[in-house]
């Protein structure tokens, strides 16, 4: 028996909106730790890892570890039917091939349930090794989204270079080139508006903008984004989910042939 009650149902709506275009089908794993997902995009270039810790749910019952295969497009369609203020409860019986999403309005005057068929998904689970990153960049998530969007109108790839002076995002395309430099800026009114570069070891990596733009669909989940970079390994783009966990996107770099 599985029963997960999430008072801030909008979080789950936002999570689905942020990953449904990157990943088609995925297994959601439920254990005593929480509700999690790990999945690659169809071209196996990016990986998404989601964790919603059990403590973040108002009620969390998971009698045994289970994995539920879902089509994320269909799940997003169902969650779109929940109001932004609704409480969302996920329910599944042992051995059942369906999951039920129950939506309760805050005043309890409307209760809806949507049942969705589960799928058998043969997914490969990857172990993500601990890495020491050369540079960790924390910046407003909206600013990062803006940079990715702007640069993708000029070129297809971005070179992210970190130096002691700051971080530079560069692209080039048929019509010209573009560079955006962000300097460390901690003298702001609100901490979420700061740009912080931790451990600024020089590092320069190239990534496909298409994927970074897709990751920025998670912007509504968090005011800040943390970007961890190290030479020749995937970048991690992390959006923390308040009080509950995180959504992390890993993207393999492009290498000069």
């Amino acid at each position: 028996m599985l029963e997960l009650r999430l008072v801030q149902g909008s979080l789950l709506k936002k999570v689905l909106e942020s990953i449904k275009d990157l990943v088609n089908d995925a297994n959601f794993d439920c254990s005593a730790t929480g509700f999690s997902l790990q999945a690659m995009d169809s071209s196996h270039v990016a990986l998404v890892a989601l964790l919603l810790r059990s403590e973040g749910f108002e009620h969390y019952r998971c009698d045994r570890n289970i994995s539920m295969g879902m089509n994320l497009g269909n799940m997003a369609k169902m969650l779109k039917c929940a109001g932004n203020d609704d409480i969302i409860t996920l329910k599944a019986d042992d051995g059942s091939d369906t999951v039920t999403f129950m939506f309760e309005s805050p005043t309890q005057d409307k209760i809806a349930d949507f049942e969705m068929r589960l799928m058998d998904i043969d997914s490969e689970h990857l172990g993500i090794p601990e890495a020491e990153y050369h540079a960790i960049l924390i910046m407003p998530s909206a600013e990062f989204a803006r940079i990715c969007k702007d640069l993708s109108s000029i070129g297809d790839t971005v070179v992210i270079s970190v130096t002691k002076e700051g971080v530079k995002f560069s692209t080039r395309g048929d019509i010209g080139t573009a560079n955006v430099v962000c300097r460390q800026n901690t003298t702001v009114d609100k901490p979420e508006e700061a740009t912080v570069i931790e451990m600024p070891e020089p590092v320069s990596l190239t990534f496909a903008l298409r994927y970074l733009n897709s990751f920025t669909k998670a912007t509504p989940l968090s005011n800040t984004v943390t970007i961890s970079l190290s030479s020749e390994i995937p970048v991690v783009v992390e959006y923390k989910i308040a009080e509950m966990g995180y959504i992390r996107f890993y993207l393999a770099p492009k290498i000069e042939e």
């Binding site: 690659m40 196996h44 270039v45 990016a46 990986l47 490969e124 689970h125 990857l126 172990g127 993500i128 090794p129 790839t157 190239t206 496909a208 390994i233 995937p234 890993y250 993207l251 393999a252 770099p253 492009k254 290498i255 000069e256 042939e257």
Partner: peptide, 14 residues
């Protein structure tokens, strides 16, 4: 030209 790496080249399967 740049070659796009796959994510599984960096992470351990299983």
């Amino acid at each position: 030209p740049c070659l796009q790496r796959k994510i599984a080249e960096y992470f351990i399967s299983g």
